[in-house]
Amino acid sequence: MTRAATGHMFKHYERARDEQGDYVKFGNEDIDLTRSHLNYNLAPAHQDGQGSFVRQRCSEVRMQNRKDVNVMCSWVVTAPKDLPQADESKFFLKTYDFLAERYGKENIVSAFVHLDETTPHMHFAFVPVVTDEKRGGYKVSAKECVTKSDLKTFHTDLSLCLQHSFGRDIGILNGATAEGNRTKVQMRLEQAKAELEKMNFELSAAEQNLSKVCVEGARRAQEASSLQLKITSLAKERDALQGKIEGLQTTFEKIRSVAFSERALKELNPKVTDKGNVFIPEKTFLALKGMAQGLLSYYIADKEIKPSIRQAIKDFESTLPVKKPKQRGDDSR
């Protein structure tokens, strides 16, 4: 990592706090503050701090004057899953000795063991100093210090070292380490592939749910359309029934008017002459004429009330005075 990036890691190693007062984290670890006092550093403490040591060590060897130069490397070594808790201290101490021998004690920045996170682990930080084959002496070169060959053999070499110390295999080599240590790019790629596979699975499930929702939505839409058609049909039937009721009401009122006129006619007590003629006032005649015209128009307009109109007409005709037939011998008088 570059000089600019080291400050954040130093704070995490030492359990320093940021400007908001929160502990600086590396990745997504959850820190259990009740266990932070159990953390310790296996490397000798530097009087002026880790950053000062890195600057001092880089000044003692050859280093390119560029901001992108990696001035520090770090291994994060996690205790094996099945390692007894009683063996953890020995595990980290022997691992520290292995790393110090591999990368040089004089280059060690720190080796903090964290026991307050999810799994016990050690951050072994060092300045990547190697022999300068061209110009002699030493130089800072992370590329030449941590090579692909180093990554490939790291876990195998560590496993053999710890197997010798413990007298047994403690489970360093597993599915993730048996074929050699993976670079950060490889690990991120594998992590991205796993996340992509998970996302594809979730997407497929979401698509299936969406399909079910669409089918259910189409079914409900069809039901709603059918109900709307039924409502429209019922509304038309209602309007037709309402019109029929209003028509019958009108007919009833008009027939009642006829009956009223019939009663009025009876009350007139029309005069009948000897010749059978009926004399009524002109006003009454006009009323009867209008009534007859109205009945005729109802008869033509609504076939359903034909029987009632006919009966009304018959009833009306029966109220009129009947002209008496002439008797024999009347002409001789």
Rank of each mutant, 00 (worst) to 15 (best):
K134V: 08
M72G: 06
A111W: 00
F98Q: 02
L248Q: 06
M122V: 08
V278Y: 01
H12Y: 03
P321V: 02
Q228Y: 08
E29I: 06
F92K: 02
T78A: 10
L189V: 13
N39W: 00
E179V: 06
L268Q: 03
N209W: 07
D239P: 02
L42M: 05
K148N: 15
G247T: 11
R310D: 15
P80K: 00
I313N: 03
A125E: 01
F26C: 09
T118I: 09
D48N: 12
D315N: 15
T250N: 08
A16S: 12
G180V: 03
E237S: 11
S211T: 11
N39H: 02
P270R: 00
D82R: 09
A176M: 14
D157P: 02
N200S: 13
F112Q: 03
A125P: 04
V130G: 01
S261M: 09
E237I: 05
T156P: 01
M9W: 04
K193N: 09
F10T: 04
N174G: 12
E88T: 04
E117F: 03
D150Q: 08
V140F: 03
K303L: 11
V129E: 00
E207F: 10
A5R: 12
N65H: 13
R238G: 11
V54R: 02
V258C: 10
S159F: 07
E117D: 04
T131S: 08
T284N: 10
L33Y: 04
K184L: 11
K244M: 06
K81V: 06
V322N: 04
L295I: 05
D22S: 05
D331N: 13
Q56W: 11
A264M: 13
G167Q: 05
I305D: 12
L151C: 05
K244A: 10
D82W: 07
K67S: 15
N200T: 14
I313M: 07
L115M: 12
A301E: 15
S225Q: 14
E216Y: 07
V129N: 00
R310L: 13
F92M: 01
C58A: 11
T78W: 05
N70G: 13
